[in-house]
């Protein structure tokens, strides 16, 4: 193990978080290396500083303020939902109705569009009646069957 690898393991070593083999190799290195031992001492000092930092206490009234705030906020969230759900449901209902209306309208437009087969049949009928000398506007009884009707 070289110094670079050893120093990467030092923090975990001080926290007793190394595996057995890592600890064995690190201890062997530390027994031979003054520089890494110095590093270990300094990190141990630092850990001791952090372990000893005093607990910071909150203000005296904090506990009560905290409880009031947490439960009041939850109540307000619940009440907000209870107040708003009829509105949300109403909007959803109107949206659904409008969607249905638009879909119906589109479907009607498709159905009322003239079929291409009927247009051709009507043109053929007009040509045939004209050829037969009848007026296609006033006398539709003289038309000839074309075979395109209904297509």
């Amino acid at each position: 193990m070289n110094c670079k690898n050893a120093q990467l393991l030092l923090s975990a070593y001080l926290d007793s978080e190394l595996t057995g083999s890592e600890m064995h190799r690190l201890r062997k290195h530390l027994s031979d290396c003054d520089c890494c031992r110095q590093e270990e001492t300094e990190l141990r000092t630092l850990k001791s500083i952090l372990t000893d930092v005093p607990q910071v206490t909150p203000p005296d009234d904090f506990e009560e303020r905290l409880c009031s705030l947490v439960f009041a906020q939850k109540r307000s969230d619940d009440e907000g939902w209870n107040r708003s759900w009829p509105l949300v449901s109403g909007v959803a209902l109107i949206t659904a109705a409008l969607t249905l209306l638009v879909m119906n309208h589109l479907s009607d437009s498709v159905q009322t569009a003239p079929k291409q087969g009927n247009v051709v049949a009507s043109e053929l009928r007009r040509d045939q009646t004209t050829l037969a000398g009848a007026n296609p506007i006033f006398d539709s009884s003289t038309s000839f069957p074309t075979g395109y009707e209904g297509k």
């Binding site: 930092v53 607990q55 910071v56 206490t57 909150p58 904090f62 506990e63 905290l66 409880c67 947490v70």
Partner: peptide, 17 residues
Amino acid sequence: ESLMRCTHRQAYSLAYR
């Protein structure tokens, strides 16, 4: 509420740090 009352001091200290 009971858990909050027990742990809020510890939580505050960590939050302060």
